[in-house]
Design a protein around this nucleic acid. Sequence first.
DNA 1: ATGAAAGCGCTAACAC
DNA 2: GTGTTAGCGCTTTCAT
Lengths: 356, 356
Amino acid sequence: MTSVSGEPRPALTTRRPTMRDVAELAGVGIKTVSRVVNGEPNVSAQTAERVRRAAASLHYEPDMHAGNLRRADGRSRTLGLLVSSVANPFAAQVHRAIERVATEHGYGVLATSLEDDPDAEVRAVAALARRRVDGFVVTPVRVDQTYLRVHVDRGTPIVCVDREPRGLDTDSVVSANTEGAAAAVRHLISRGHRRIAFLGDLERIQTARLRLDGYIQELTAAGFDVDRSLVVMGLHDEASATAVARRLLTLPDPPTAVFSSQNLVTIGTVRALQQLGRENVVALVGFDDIETSDLLKPGITTVAQDPDRIGRLAAERLFARIDGELGPPRHLVVPTRLVVRGSGEIPGPGAATTRA
Amino acid sequence: MTSVSGEPRPALTTRRPTMRDVAELAGVGIKTVSRVVNGEPNVSAQTAERVRRAAASLHYEPDMHAGNLRRADGRSRTLGLLVSSVANPFAAQVHRAIERVATEHGYGVLATSLEDDPDAEVRAVAALARRRVDGFVVTPVRVDQTYLRVHVDRGTPIVCVDREPRGLDTDSVVSANTEGAAAAVRHLISRGHRRIAFLGDLERIQTARLRLDGYIQELTAAGFDVDRSLVVMGLHDEASATAVARRLLTLPDPPTAVFSSQNLVTIGTVRALQQLGRENVVALVGFDDIETSDLLKPGITTVAQDPDRIGRLAAERLFARIDGELGPPRHLVVPTRLVVRGSGEIPGPGAATTRA
DNA sequence: ATGAAAGCGCTAACAC
DNA sequence: GTGTTAGCGCTTTCAT
């Protein structure tokens, strides 16, 4: 090795400059740099310019976390988001809406996918707490959110989305699940259907139960009995939905309409209908919208949620609390919208036979 | 107000306990708490248990950022992710895959949506740098990524996904865009098509150009001329794709097949075909998969990408670099897969008329 | 096995 | 207008 003795080996990576480095280069004190970087007053325009030049030439980036350690408000300017999965289209749209509001406030978003695992929920909250997020947006998975109380007590606000919390009252933003499901069933009844099947998600999922409630309420209100053999819960993927839909549709006295309470279940049901060649005979309304519903034949009539609005409202609630809003928790309910595309308008046996 | 004089007003929020609080309660030095919390050796089992109890009773959560300030490796255990939009299905799946690997490493992910805004790219990188992320996964938007060099030089590795960087050589993971497009065109040619339209995204988007390259290469290789009147770039949404597709399909000598190079363009094309009632006459292959492609009639034949694999490989590359891997940048190309569903198999004028 | 002192990069408080 | 000092919550170093 022929290295010149005494010659310093070049560092593999260049050291990241600190405020002190900028101060030295600009020939000022470190506090002056701090003032310039943070846009505080009491720095002459000349000095400020020298500091800015020095900072730029060094590519100085202030260390946010170091600053927060001493800063009075101690804000990390980061939000924690807990969703079923960042890959889930509904959750992803909620996420995007939250991010938009967060960006306006100079905040970043740390998102975590829970995949319906109750333990992942507490682990994720702990991990985010160690990162000192200023607030949480949580899609509850556990049956009880009491464990979050300590965070609220320490001033870290929480907003629940999609599902209401239990064991702890927090701000929340959810879809009008019961009303939306009722509207779907009402729509089918108005088209002459009496035997309407209900295909629901896992019983432990709050929204699945609420949509079932809406279904039962509306049938009852219309004076029909709820035929329990047409109600199936526990469907969480396409395959099982297809299987159950096929079974119901090949019953001796099959339903003339289906209300599916979740996206994957709707898709599974469409597949079953197509396999049986009954997609133009049996009516279908699905809860939650599907991107390409209108390209199918028939188009799928759905109860559309508004994830963008849900996310935006949740973020606005959270920032209001971060900014010190007091008062009792607020519970926001975002209306759904029935999107008519064809599948839900297939007439049932009781349909008026008169034509225009 | 009848408050007992001298009685301290309860704090609105309880102060967050520090290591010092835990140490005091456990009757040990702060360093001992640090040892227990970090699982370091040289603490008696008895003492450790006392510390753990004290920490639990106070709901102590160590401040990660404070620790990083002094910690030798200075890791924030956070990754920065820049994508078109967290709501984009492809990006969301890449995101989920990255998150999975990150979680295994005890890392969090800060995702930012760029919405194809070149300025948002630099702003996002700066914001993430101030948060001291340990690495970046970037979907490049700008024509030049030279601005990232300073971060690489300081030891913050970068992996580009979906598109290759320019002006700076980094690890990258992309789909086989040219090959995938060529395979689509080859498929159409094999079904007897000669006049194949190409509907592409904005010319400035790298993947759009590469897919056009594949289209041209394959047509040329087959000995056909490229009819420029059948090639339209600059399509970035459904509406414009529908309009252009309608125009091409109503030409005096219309194409008998369409290759659409992007999801929204494919959907727009399907709509045009349905409006003209030609979805069973004109062949269609789309680049990038659509969730419910198989429910349409005909099903949409697509060149499917593998976002899960892309995300996983990108994260693995990034962690390899974070863990100190040296050596030249690696460029990974993830193969695409032609998914046959019907629309791409509609025969063209040159199709063999013999039947099995 | 345990702890005291110094210091990470920055801001608060207060001097000049 | 500007700089100095202390200290945020933690880890490092080094003593005991």
